[in-house]
């Protein structure tokens, strides 16, 4: 990476840190605010690398170990970058009965990645999630935060993926 490029990234990061600090400033007097701050940080950075965790720990005046403990405990938080489009496959019992395994296998095949991995172009990553509470639509796939796909069959998957390929 040339210095020019890294400068751009640094400048961008600095901006993100500033926004995060402003958010922390707003909420830091409320008790038990760590998880809320981490939600915000992940929303902004996309993931929670150790640098971000240290930063949060310092601002909230908490030991880094506590922040790390929370990040690694909850499934929602990740220390690895995720794809631009996160494909979440419901692994609940109702989806299992309706063939979620076949859907998962097809995604793995189409994207050439395994669970919790990111595609080479960074466009997709594949995740298993707990029951999404849409069992009557099983098997269910959630892409990003709001795109719900119900009664998914393995054959539909190429068509679904096409929508997200630029």
């Amino acid at each position: 990476m040339s210095t020019g490029e890294s400068n751009v990234i640094c400048a961008e990061h600095e901006k993100l840190y500033k926004t995060l600090d402003a958010f922390i400033e707003e909420v830091k007097d409320k008790p038990g605010v760590l998880i809320e701050v981490l939600h915000k940080a992940q929303e902004m950075f996309g993931y929670l690398p150790t640098e971000v965790q240290s930063h949060v720990a310092e601002r909230l005046n908490l030991p880094e170990s506590q922040v790390y403990g929370v990040v690694t405990f909850y499934n929602f938080f990740t220390m690895k970058p995720r794809g631009k489009h996160q494909i979440k496959i419901c692994l609940g019992t109702a989806c299992y009965v309706k063939g979620a395994e076949k859907v998962l296998d097809r995604f793995k095949e189409e994207l050439k990645v395994d669970m919790e991995e990111i595609t080479e172009d960074g466009n997709f990553s594949l995740h298993g999630v707990r029951c999404l509470g849409a069992c009557s639509m099983a098997p269910v796939v959630l892409i990003g935060e709001k795109d719900f796909y119900g009664k998914v069959t393995a054959n539909e998957i190429p068509k679904i993926l096409k929508k997200y390929r630029g």
């Binding site: 609940g92 707990r130 029951c131 509470g133």
Partner: peptide, 10 residues
């Protein structure tokens, strides 16, 4: 609500 199969609360 996270009990697989339950979505009444949602």
């Amino acid at each position: 609500e996270g009990e697989p199969g339950t979505f009444k609360d949602r």
